[in-house]
Design a protein around this nucleic acid. Structure first.
Length: 213
DNA sequence: ATTTTCAAT
């Protein structure tokens, strides 16, 4: 039963030290041989009611989550809410990834999303996974996600994650050194990656800048 | 910056 497996793998709260270690957005993240994925699933049940699900997965469970989405596990019947008129159901899914998705995951996600236009996905990433070479497939994967309508941004503030996914939530989040600066640099790089293929907009922006200066 | 990278056998 894939759904049972999903709930077994989905843990709700993350230990503080785990969260900080894996979500640190430093440029050279040594030893992060794991990927953490915090997710929030919002589902519009009726025009004025929302259901809300959250938790975190890691490593292979990310692939499992993908597989479950592909298998239709987000369908209301499987989730046990069984609305008979589920035609207009809308999902809003937010991912907070420690590493950005690899090219394979991006490809599968994009494909899944094209078949499920009632699902909106936002992805926040702490670090970019294998995105240094300009022609890397990981970069192309991120662009593919963007074309599939995914909003990809870097995590600039982790307070929401801290309050939502981390145990001992009463403790105030203390930002690590360079959190903001790293996030600015990362955002710039991500922007560069996503700009490729949007040359018209880019040219326009450049012209504008030249005129101004 | 010369560096990092989905962790289970």
């Amino acid at each position: 039963n894939p759904l049972k497996t999903y709930f077994l793998c989905l843990s709700v709260l993350l230990a503080q030290n785990k969260f900080i270690y894996h979500y640190k957005n430093m440029r050279w993240a040594k030893g992060r041989h794991e990927t953490y994925l915090c997710i929030v699933v919002k589902r519009r049940v009726r025009p004025n009611s929302l259901s809300f699900d959250f938790g975190h997965l890691r490593n292979r469970h990310l692939v499992l989550f993908l597989r479950l989405m592909e298998a239709g596990a987000l369908c209301p019947c499987l989730w046990g809410y069984g609305a008979p008129d589920s035609v207009g159901l809308c999902y809003s899914v937010t991912w907070f990834c420690s590493w950005s998705p690899c090219s394979d995951c991006s490809y599968r996600l994009a494909q899944f999303l094209s078949q499920n236009p009632n699902l909106r996905l936002r992805i926040y990433v702490s670090r970019l996974y294998f995105c240094d070479p300009e022609d890397s497939s990981a970069r192309e994967g991120l662009r593919m996600l963007q074309r599939a309508g995914v909003q990809i941004t870097t995590i600039s503030t982790v307070v929401y994650c801290w309050q939502t996914f981390v145990a001992c939530r009463q403790r105030v989040f203390k930002a690590w050194d360079g959190l903001h600066q790293n996030s600015v640099q990362l955002a710039r790089k991500l922007n560069d990656i996503l700009q490729v293929g949007h040359t018209h907009t880019h040219t326009h922006t450049c012209t504008h800048t030249v005129l101004l200066s």
